[in-house]
């Protein structure tokens, strides 16, 4: 498909995501709903990868460029951050380490439990 058609398809799914999210009883970001919706449309083959290939590759490869502006806006937040920068870094760093360990541990545990239940099933037969 032509770039413009691909882009239209992506923005259409985006708009549908906003509509769907607004119907939920809880606050839910429209963009994340549109991501979920796109995933479901791809799974059900209602949309094929080739129909959005170039546009999605462009967005995925250059996503970093769209986040520069929010980072630059940190200039507005200097007052809030005053005297708290060190703590801000510390919370992010320590929490990331804890998250890594907790995630690795829970995946490991799940794999062990799944193996055990499979072995039990095997023994029962």
């Amino acid at each position: 498909m032509k770039i413009m058609e691909q882009l239209t398809l992506v923005t259409l799914v985006g708009l549908a995501g906003i509509v769907l999210a607004s119907l939920l009883p809880i606050p839910f970001p429209g963009s994340i709903m549109s991501m979920l919706l796109m995933f479901i449309l791809l799974l059900s083959k209602a949309i094929r990868i080739r129909q959005i290939e170039q546009v999605s590759q462009f967005f995925l490869a250059n996503m970093g460029a769209f986040f520069i502006v929010p980072v630059v806006a940190i200039l507005e937040q200097l007052e809030v951050m005053k005297g708290k920068t060190l703590q801000f870094f510390a919370v992010c760093i320590v929490s990331t380490l804890i998250t890594f360990i907790a995630t690795a541990g829970s995946v490991k545990l799940t794999l062990v439990l799944m193996k055990k239940s499979q072995a039990n099933k095997g023994a029962g037969q």
Binding site: V10, M35, M38, I52, L60, V69
Partner: peptide, 24 residues
């Protein structure tokens, strides 16, 4: 700076929609 910057911020939305492609 944000006059043009806001335009780039708007592109985060369709980029998020496209994350589905990388998972699919």
């Amino acid at each position: 700076y944000q006059v043009g910057g806001d335009f780039l911020i708007m592109l985060i939305f369709p980029a998020t929609t496209c994350i589905a492609v990388s998972v699919y």
